[in-house]
Design a protein around this nucleic acid. Structure first.
Length: 302
DNA sequence: AGTTGTCAAGCTAGT
DNA sequence: ACTAGCTTGACAACT
């Protein structure tokens, strides 16, 4: 009897719907106080710990940590040294992740635009990236823990916007560069655009299977996976891939509520030649991740 | 107790 | 002109 090992780590973003807690409990700016902040961070970290324990018990070894873990993490109102205050908790969570060889990513949100025309938006974006780095650093994770962003806006001139990305990227700190990867999006920047930027910067490209279905330059998935995979160096870890499928009767690009088994099995077939860690961006989160894990196991055994 | 409108931040495409 | 959608809820402020 041959034992098949599932190399692929499977995960889901930010939120577990089975557990009755959230890792991104936030509060309003007008109610900001240090006492409230400490309370929220504390409950977020407790929930993160619970979520990771759930993941371990269920064989899910990939997780995206919510950008809301530290409320107002990059906002000027935040002067509190949370890294020091929660050092014990952060260290302990980081140790748990490393001990169990879990893969971690983060996804700075849609406001993070390093190719923005407006310099203030770029500055805020850099702060946001620094904040995300601080989380991953405070957990003492190596450089295979990534933060993924899209190229950004087009601003009516894609060529100039790509050049602005490259220029602004070159000014980022090494710490950010070590963790930053770019992801093809569903309407503006295709895999080919990302590869062009990779060629000029060396930045790894995280392949989004569903976005590629929405927007591509003709590469079949297999070729696309191969192309994106090659942009990851050894220290970046195994290439991360995002997976989702179209929500029926909804606008193009919206994510499905639950795993489309047939579509996913097709993905498994097309990706079977490659080493990758898989993030399932499906609305019912861990439920679909568990279904996917089961299907992946069956597939490997077949 | 349950419901609703709003939240730090931007962009794009569809309506 | 407006807004859903993005990784999308959570929570404060109302009934």
């Amino acid at each position: 009897m041959v034992i098949f090992i599932i190399n692929m780590k499977i995960g889901y973003p930010c939120l577990n719907r089975t557990l009755n807690c959230t890792t991104g409990s936030t509060f309003r700016l007008k109610n900001y106080s240090e006492a409230e902040l400490i309370k929220k961070i504390s409950s977020n970290l407790i929930c993160l710990e619970k979520t990771l324990e759930f993941n371990l018990e269920n064989g899910l070894f990939f997780f995206r940590i919510s950008s809301d873990l530290i409320p107002f993490g990059s906002h000027p109102v935040m002067k509190f040294n949370w890294q020091e205050y929660f050092k014990a908790e952060l260290t302990s969570i980081g140790r748990f992740i490393k001990k169990n060889q879990m893969r971690i990513s983060m996804h700075p949100d849609q406001f993070t635009l390093i190719n923005a025309v407006n310099k203030k938006i770029v500055r805020n974006s850099v702060r946001e990236l620094e904040y995300h780095c601080q989380i991953l650093d405070s957990l003492d994770l190596d450089k295979s823990a990534k933060m993924q962003i899209h190229i950004g806006g087009v601003y009516g001139d894609k060529k100039a916007s790509k050049e602005r990305f490259i220029k602004n990227y070159s000014r980022l700190s090494l710490n950010i560069k070590n963790r930053l990867v770019i992801e093809n999006d569903d309407k503006s920047y295709s895999l080919e655009d990302c590869i062009e930027i990779h060629d000029k910067t060396g930045i790894p490209v995280l392949f989004d299977f569903f976005h590629h279905e929405c927007l591509n330059n003709g590469d079949v998935p297999k070729k696309a996976l191969e192309t994106a995979g090659k942009t990851w160096r050894k220290k970046d870890g195994i290439p991360m891939v995002d997976y989702s499928s179209q929500k029926k009767d909804s606008r193009k690009g919206s994510h499905a509520e639950s795993l489309d088994k047939k579509h996913f099995v097709k993905f498994l077939t097309q990706s079977s030649d490659f080493d990758l860690d898989l993030m399932l961006e499906i609305k019912d989160k861990e439920k679909s991740a568990l279904k996917a894990l089961k299907l992946a196991k069956e597939k490997r055994r077949a």
